[in-house]
Every structure is written in C-alpha cells, then in structure tokens.
Design a binder for these strands. Structure first.
Lengths: 206, 206
DNA sequence: TCGTGATTTGACCATCTGGTCAAACTCACG
DNA sequence: CGTGAGTTTGACCAGATGGTCAAATCACGA
C-alpha cells in the first residue's frame, strides 16, 4: 500500500475501523493478550487484509497510542492561565472525570501501557508530558504565590487529579462491585465528591 | 504430587520459589503476557517440574491471587473503630502508601486483574470486599454523625484512598518520568501531600 | 470498456506456548 | 543399603499466533 499518496476512501474507512477495533481489543486484553485475528474480525477484515494496512501488530498499537495521546492530554492544555484559578482546576477535574466516563477504553489502554513500564511511550512521557506538566506546575505555583489557591505541591496535585479521575474508568469493575446494584452509576457521586475534595484542598485557608 | 499429605521440605521451597517468580512475571507482563517457561526459569525449575507443583498456568495465578488478597486488605481491617477517627484514617492512608512503596508488584498484579474486568476475583469483590467496605462505610458514617470528621461520601472516600495510594505503585514509571532525575524518590512528597489533602478534607468545618 | 493500481484472500510457514508422559533420578527411612 | 515414594527431565504434541506471498478481484479514471 502506497504511504506517500493521499489516502483513498477505502483506506480511510478501513484504517478507522481497524483502530476502533484495536482500541476495543487492546484495552480489554492488553498488548500481549490481543490477537491480530481478533482485531481483524472485529474490524470486518481478514487478517492479511488488516496487515495490508498496518505492517504488524506493533504498528497498530503504536498508531493507536499516538492518535490518542493528544486527545488524552487536551484537557490539561485547556487550562486557562488567566481564568479563575480554583474554577480552572475544578473544570479540569470535571473534564477528566467525564473522559473516564465517556472514554474508559482509552483510559484502560494507557493504564495498561504504563503499568507495564510504558515500553512504547516512555520517551514521550519523559519529554512532552514532562514539559507540559512542568509548565502547568509553574502556573499553579504562581496561583499559590498570588494567594488564589492554598499551598500544595503542584506535581502531586496533578498526579492526584489523574489518579482520582482515571480510577473510575480503570477500576470500574471494582467500584461497581463494591457499590452494588443499589447505585448503578458511580459518576454523579464521584463528581460531587471530587468537587468537595478539591475545593477543600485548594481554597486558601482563612 | 500428593495433595493430602503434609508438604515436604522440597515442596515448601519450590512452591515458594514458584509464587515469588510468578509474582514477578505476572505483575510485569499480565496473565496473558506471562509464559510458564519464564516463570519456571525464574524459579530455577524446568517447565514440567513447575507443572508438577501447579497443574496449570491458571492454577499458579489463582494461588498467587488468593495468597495476596488477604495481605492486601489487612490495612483496612486494621482500622480501630474506637481510635481517634482522623488519626485512624490518616494511619490507614500511610499504611496503604507504604504498601505501594514496598509491594509495588502486588499492587500492579491487582491493578492488572481489575482492569481486565477481574475475571478471577469478581466473586470475591462482590462478596467479601463489598461487605468489608460496607462495614467501614458504616463506621465512617458514625464518625461523621458524631462530628469527628467532616461530612463526606464514605464509599468515595475509600475509593479515593485506594486510588491515590496505589497510583504511586501502578503509575510509578509515569510519575518518575514527570518528576525527572531531580526528585528520584516520589514517596516523601506523596506522603506529605496525602496527609495534607486528607487532613483538609476530613477536618470538620469550623 | 479497458487497463492499471489498489484491495482482498486462501494457503502457507515458523515459532511460541501450555501441557503431557514415560523414564530416570533422588531422597528419606527402615 | 535397599526400597518405594517423591522429584526431575527430555522429548514430544496440538493448537494458537504473527506474519508472508502469489494470485485473484475490485475500483476508477481515461
């Protein structure tokens, strides 16, 4: 398949179908647990046909990760340095929680990759992600210095936001098992709780 | 191998070596990504020899999970209903964070299992874990009613403790990548941050 | 309608993997 | 030191899996 020409209609359709199927399969079985056959079947293609569009299983996985990384970090970039600090952070938290609710497969895919030591995206974490977080940490430091929010470690603040929001996607099964049938949707409670938690943490002390 | 007799010296030694090796391999590669050969080699045995002690790959995994579940939940059981509420909860958080630091492989093993939908321990979650959490939630409700701690959703409080502490084990690579070489040990900062976070959240409002 | 490049597929291959088995070896104990 | 239970292993198997390839089929612009 020519890589240099503009993609044909069929190429667009099939590549999209493959990535969608791959997201399903990789996020539930992990890289190793996923099979090319399974992805091909789910995408409505034969295995050799799938391998016509992506050279190898690795290539599918890499393409998928790359395409999702930006989307995943968009909410962090959307924080407005000139907005109301507490509101900006609370909005960020809400957006991240909504992403856990609406895109749990993406969350689990990343969780999987990172638990395994981030073999495919370690470089991106140490470079792009680090500098993005460094910038945000600087912004938070400024907000603290200006007295808009309470004094907290900005890095651990960011880690805690990631942790608490993604937990609802990654550990969904456990959460539902513990809450039982009486509370089938954990997200309203989660949203209220996280609002309360971060408001109390970040509101400057009297 | 006779299962009914008391285990011999060799059986004890080899079973222990197998579970230790299995913890290593399963926690870094997941169930599917781990191979029996790899576990056997790491345990210093041949593959058929390993399968003499555990019938199958599944059996190793099941034995490992079972042996670890209790240990993993011990800190929750250790909360003293008659202690100082805030201190009991902060101690629980510290213990959980220490477990992430000292037993990251166990944490990742569970994370892996649950991300995949907890196929092997779903029943335990819905039964034993649920009732243990229900009890603790009752205790927290009592503490709130008595005015010892602020009003929070007890279930989401517990989820947040699990999330925040286990995050440091499961996402270790990401955390170290973001913090960079300047701060090689995330745990002191994490400990201080979590203390601050939960103290502010749980201290009753004036 | 034709020709060419894009797409699809059946057949195939090498390797890996979980698991089996009979035979060989080792250990503890009488 | 002999014996039987406990332990170890090399050889092997069947199925799964990632990937290849030549040939067949399809789509579309001239």
């Amino acid at each position: 398949m020519p890589e240099d020409r503009a993609p044909t209609r069929i190429q667009k359709k099939n590549r999209a179908a493959i990535l969608e199927a791959a997201l399903n399969v990789f996020s539930t079985h992990g890289f190793r647990g996923a099979t090319v056959d399974q992805i091909a079947t789910e995408a409505g293609l034969s295995k050799p046909n799938l391998l016509y569009y992506y050279r190898s299983k690795d290539a599918i996985y890499a393409a998928l990760l790359e395409r999702l990384l930006d989307t995943w970090l968009d909410p962090l970039r959307a924080i407005d340095p000139n907005g109301n600090p507490l509101q900006e952070l609370l909005s960020y938290i809400r957006r991240k929680l909504e992403m856990s609710r609406d895109y749990p497969r993406e969350s689990r895919l990343f969780a999987n990759e990172i638990i395994r030591g981030a073999p495919h995206i370690h470089a991106v974490l140490s470079a792009d992600l680090k500098s993005l977080v460094d910038e945000t940490a600087q912004l938070i430091r400024r907000w603290i210095a200006e007295g808009h929010i309470a004094e907290v470690n900005p890095y651990h603040l960011i880690f805690s936001i990631w942790s608490l929001t993604q937990h609802y996607a990654d550990f969904d099964v456990q959460i539902r098992a513990v809450l039982g049938d009486a509370e089938p949707d954990p997200y309203p409670g989660a949203s209220a709780y996280l609002d309360q938690l971060f408001t109390r943490l970040l509101t400057p002390q009297g």
